[in-house]
Design a protein around this nucleic acid. Structure first.
Lengths: 100, 100
DNA sequence: TTATTATATTAATAAATTATAATATAATAA
DNA sequence: TTATTATATTATAATTTATTAATATAATAA
């Protein structure tokens, strides 16, 4: 039994809306845009996004748990980067639409 | 005094994150995708999105108040369509990324 | 006119998110 | 070893969002 248009759209929207949750909040979007530009430490992101240390770390932990970003340790610093290429693609498109 | 990269990004993210709020929820995204495809009545949208009558109407009222959609009356039906072209552009890009 | 259908509104409540504060850990420096 | 810096964790407070239920309005049909 073939999936119809409604069912396909519904499933895609569930996937995509799940990703957009992270981009639908100004500071989290700023954070992801900066990481998409190049990997950044928690301290950098805290400053760039204007979030507290605790909140920055919590937000990153959640995004990491969801597979959107990944991290590596550099001495006492932790550097985060984009892991999910769907997120990178969305940010690129938004950049084209709104920043060109 | 020229705006720096950080300030520009911050301002753009505030604008775009504000729009993405409406797309970051599966049923609202489904609703906007269907309207972007072609104008739809409240009853159509209710069925397509699986939301209650009341919720469908409330969601549409809010989107209309924000200027994302507009409506016209056809007898006892009300038809909604996309008003904000930024939303149409975002949906088009997402379509290209996720549905092609 | 009365009944029915489509949509809107309001209020109350449930559920989820966001943010803060306090504290913990782990790496390096003094 | 002790102090400092960077990051993480936990609990909880504050706020926002989502949902339901009840009711209202407005158009058309019987």
């Amino acid at each position: 039994m073939k999936k119809d248009k409604k069912q396909i759209l519904t499933e895609k929207c569930e996937e995509v809306a799940g990703l957009l949750k992270y981009l639908s909040h100004p500071q989290r979007m700023i954070l992801l845009c900066w990481i998409a530009d190049s990997p950044k430490t928690v301290g950098d992101l805290q400053e760039l996004c204007g979030m507290s240390q605790s909140l920055t770390s919590q937000v990153l932990a959640k995004m990491k748990a969801e597979g959107l970003v990944s991290s590596r340790k550099d001495g006492k610093f932790v550097t985060y980067q984009i892991e999910d290429q769907r997120v990178a693609k969305i940010i690129n498109s938004l950049n084209k639409i709104f920043c060109e």
